[in-house]
Design a protein around this nucleic acid. Structure first.
Lengths: 250, 250
DNA sequence: ACCTGAACACCGTTCAAGT
DNA sequence: ACCTGAACACCGTTCAAGT
């Protein structure tokens, strides 16, 4: 218990040694909470030091004492989103595909709860405690599926990327200022449904069936398809390991 | 030939009627090309009116005569990226899955040729000529696959979202300023490979096999898995239509 | 030690002014 | 008609100054 749980030193809370007589009003955790509060309340480009400072009742530049720059704050917020996704997630079971779906859904939901943050976070690596835990969980599911290590690593990456890419994409749409977002959505109800059939015959044929771009069912279907494909490959991997048990054709 | 090829009026080039004696130095197309030139040359936050103006040898605000605001320029750039993806794309064949893969690869490549633009464009709807054409092509592949209209529309959306989401995600990473990007990449070679195995056992087991986050093979594998799943569903859809031809079990 | 104020180098956007 | 210049309300970040 003498060693910290998080091994990377640059993410530890306050390496500042507290002197008696100093009572800090701010904290990393307080700033993180203020940032989420602001990002949910305000639209458009909500995540500014000015807004976070106002939310804290402090000067915007006071934040620099706790985060080196805005990017470090962003990575902390990303890790907090991972924590939110993991909080209350059920323990792993034998049904690795269902476990992956559960983790995927929770991650997607956590991202969409904070679209202003999430739109910039999908491609980033938080390299912090909760992200480590999430990676470990997803890799665990792939190993439970029966993939050998190299494949478990590959399929971990491709599954996580699917979740993060979709979550960031849908968060980007949700984070648009309302007028811009409405105009984008409207184009699928107007322009895309009134295109001339002679120029765009296939589009015209299915125009009445186009799902909304902001339908969460799009993400669900994407994950379902990927899990279908992974189940096939997992079955193949297991039958390769124990040929007596697998039923392969050709 | 009297009607314009693009049916939506708000995207038409210059609805300004030219008076004699006026010789515009700028144009929509010229601004678009300058924007791409700037976005490829400069890193970080390259896509500013100041930089585009400098590239054109014109005042930054001169652009406002050709694009209402930065968002309209972004949508024009997105459509230009779609045009790039379609340029030289082979005609549709009977092998709809290979056609989809080809379109996906070209779209991904076009996005990654312009990461500074692409990082903001994935979730947007350009609602312009080349996007219409692309949607029509992908829907066409789904109909060739044998999906009925509602399913063709659903699978069009989920396939396009996969491509756009991955392309935007990888573009976001590529668009980071070099130091930030390097730090993110390095964390997969350092932090993630030195985590304590007792706390993260599954991660530790596969740590040596983790693919790089910027490996384009991640996108390829994601698309491959989705096409696997779509092939299965297409076979099922066809056997539902012509039960004599399909070989279903159960 | 902790926070504030002022300053700097940027942004997008508007609008009056030049030609 | 087309472009420029000045101005406005913002950004993130640095640094000296307050307490």
């Amino acid at each position: 218990m003498s060693t910290p749980t998080t091994p990377s030193t640059d993410v530890a809370e306050p390496r500042r040694r507290r002197k008696p007589g100093t009572k800090p009003r701010l904290s990393r955790q307080g700033i993180i909470e203020a940032a989420f509060a602001v990002s949910e309340r305000d639209g458009a480009q909500a995540l500014t030091f000015q807004a976070i400072g106002a939310q804290l009742g402090a000067h915007p530049t006071a934040i620099y004492r706790y985060f080196r720059d805005k990017d470090e704050l962003l990575l902390a917020l990303l890790d907090a989103i991972h924590a939110e996704a993991l909080a209350g997630a059920p323990e792993p079971t034998d049904d690795w595909a269902a476990d992956l779906a559960e983790l995927g859904r929770r991650t997607y939901a956590a991202f969409l709860r904070h679209p202003q943050v999430a739109q910039f976070a999908g491609a980033r690596t938080a390299r912090r405690e909760n992200e480590f835990r999430k990676v470990d969980r997803v890799v665990g599911c792939m190993r439970t599926a029966g993939f050998e290590d190299a494949d478990a690593a590959r399929y971990y990456r491709v599954f996580s990327d699917l979740i993060l890419a979709h979550a960031a994409l849908d968060a980007s749409l949700a984070a648009l200022d309302p007028a811009t977002r409405a105009a984008d959505l409207r184009s699928w109800d107007v322009e895309y449904r009134t295109l001339p059939a002679d120029l765009f015959p296939d589009l015209a044929a299915v125009a009445d069936h186009l799902p909304r771009v902001d339908d969460p069912g799009n993400f669900e279907l994407a994950m379902e398809l990927m899990l279908d494909a992974l189940r096939m490959r997992a079955a193949a991997a297991r039958s390769r390991r124990r040929p007596d048990d697998g039923r392969k054709r050709t």
